[in-house]
């Protein structure tokens, strides 16, 4: 009995220590990466390629998801608002939801799977194949070479992708309202503009910047901590997606509580 209790306590203690170690290592990685910003000659040449990989290459999947999100939002809004509520509130609901929530969050979750897992797997592979060690041997700053351009590219490109996703989501919701619902463009635009504030767009941009940093940062962290070969790479990719998704949702709640 005593052994079981002590075993359980040891499990809790080890998990807590591991979590705290992880947080500490992540903080150390963040600080080291910030310090690596001064090595611009190392990370700058890789910034645009990473922007292309992380941002431009993610646009199709982000737009695909946003399109169907807009369609579903419009249909569900019309279904929910049937009755006494004016139909132009479909525009309000689609616009507000896409700008404030679904555009940034769904795009970030999607990119957590695509970009985060990709970075984690890439860096994990480099780690298990000792390419990262080789960089250090060649006097390359691995953080400036591997982490900084990815994180900066995500910070720069996530808002772009999110803005495009928001625009397309609203557009698809608009077209759905015109084609599938008994609505006119003036009605939809009226609802769209009814409660619109420019701050809403800034809110989406701020959220997407933080989401980009989290997704790539978590991917880099788990990638650089990959161990035990291909199995470890897969585990790192999975952890990246899970942790990044959780952090995205936590950050989403944090920004909503602090900025709105």
């Amino acid at each position: 009995m005593l052994e079981r209790v002590s075993g359980a306590l040891a499990l809790v203690g080890s998990r807590t220590i591991t979590a705290l170690q992880g947080m500490g290592q992540a903080w150390a990685l963040l600080m080291a990466s910030a310090a690596s910003l001064r090595n611009a000659d190392v990370w700058l040449p890789h910034l645009v390629p990473q922007m292309a990989r992380i941002g431009v290459a993610s646009v199709p999947i982000a737009l695909f998801i946003a399109t169907f999100t807009g369609i579903v939002m419009s249909l569900q809004a019309s279904y929910t608002l049937t009755g006494t509520i004016p139909v132009y509130f479909v525009g309000t609901l689609v616009g507000k939801t896409m700008i404030l929530e679904l555009g940034p969050v769904l795009t970030a979750l999607t990119l957590a799977g695509r970009v985060g897992a990709n970075i984690s797997a890439e860096l994990g592979t480099m780690r298990v194949t000792e390419q990262v060690d080789a960089l250090e041997t060649l006097a390359y700053d691995p953080l400036a070479y591997l982490v900084v351009p990815r994180v900066l590219a995500a910070i720069l490109m996530f808002p772009i992708v999110v803005l495009l996703a928001i625009a397309l989501g609203i557009g698809s919701g608009w077209i759905t309202a015109l084609q599938l619902l008994d609505m006119s463009s003036p009605e939809f635009v009226k609802g769209l503009r009814l409660f619109f504030l420019p701050w809403d767009v800034w809110f989406a941009v701020i959220k997407s910047v933080s989401f980009g940093a989290v997704v790539t940062g978590v991917g880099c962290y788990f990638g650089l901590r990959t161990e035990r070969g291909a199995e470890g790479v897969g585990r790192s990719a999975t952890r990246t997606v899970v942790v990044a998704s959780m952090l995205i949702l936590c950050l989403d709640a944090f920004w909503a509580a602090t900025l709105l």
């Binding site: 390629p49 292309a52 941002g55 490109m157 772009i160 803005l163 495009l164 928001i166 625009a167 941009v205």
Partner: peptide
């Protein structure tokens, strides 16, 4: 690739500002 990135960035900024 750089042109593509530039196009996407400008397009995103334009969408945000114009929208």
């Amino acid at each position: 690739r750089e042109a593509l990135v530039g196009l996407v960035v400008l397009l995103g900024i334009a969408v945000g500002v114009v929208g």
